[in-house]
Amino acid sequence: MKPVRLIIVAVGGQGNLLAARVLGEAALSENVPVRMSEIHGMAQRGGVVESAMIFGDAESPIISDGSADVLLGFEPAETLRALNRANPETVVVTNTATLPPFTAAIGRGVYPEMEKILSLLRAKTGRVIAFDALALAREAKNPLALNMVLLGALVRTGRIPVTPEAVRRAIASETKKAFVDSNIAAFELGFEKAA
C-alpha cells in the first residue's frame, strides 16, 4: 500500500494525541500498517503538539518537510505555521476557531487575519477544508470533542486509508465511556461538514 503521511498540529490540551490514538487503533483494526510519533515536550505549558502518522508501506515514524499528504490543524495559525510540512498537492483540514498565543495576547506579535490564513492555505496547497470545529463540537454538546469533529472531516476527505466505521468503533473503545455518544455525534458533524 502506497504510504499516506498525515501531520496533525494542535495546541497543548486540544486533544490531538487522543485523535491520533483513535485513528491508529482504527487502522490497526483494519490491518492497515501504521506508525506514529509525537513531540509534546511541554504540551501542558501551552506549546505546540505535533503528531505524525504514516499509513501503509513505509518504515519511518516521522515525516520530513514537504512530505505530508494531509495536514490536519486544530488551530488556524498553527496550521499555517506547519505549512513547511505540506506540498502543493497536500490536502489541508483546519479548524478556524482561534486560540491566540499569549505572545499575541500581550502585544508581542500580531495574530494573522483569518481571511489571510485561508487564502494562503488555498493558494499553496491542493485542497483546503476549513470550518469552525469548535462550533460543531458545541453543537454536539461537548466542546472538548473538537478533536472528534476534525477527525470526522479528515476521514471524509477519503485520503486516510481507514473506513468511517472503523473510526466509530475506535471512538467507542478508546474514549471515555461518558463521552462516547457526544464524541460520535461530533465525529458525524465533522464528517457531514466535509462532504
Binding site: 511541554m42 505549558r45 501551552g46 491566540p100 495574530y111
Partner: peptide, 12 residues
Amino acid sequence: LPEIPARPPNLC
C-alpha cells in the same frame, strides 16, 4: 507568509 506570533511553552 506573515509573521506568526510564537507559541513558546510558558508557565501555566
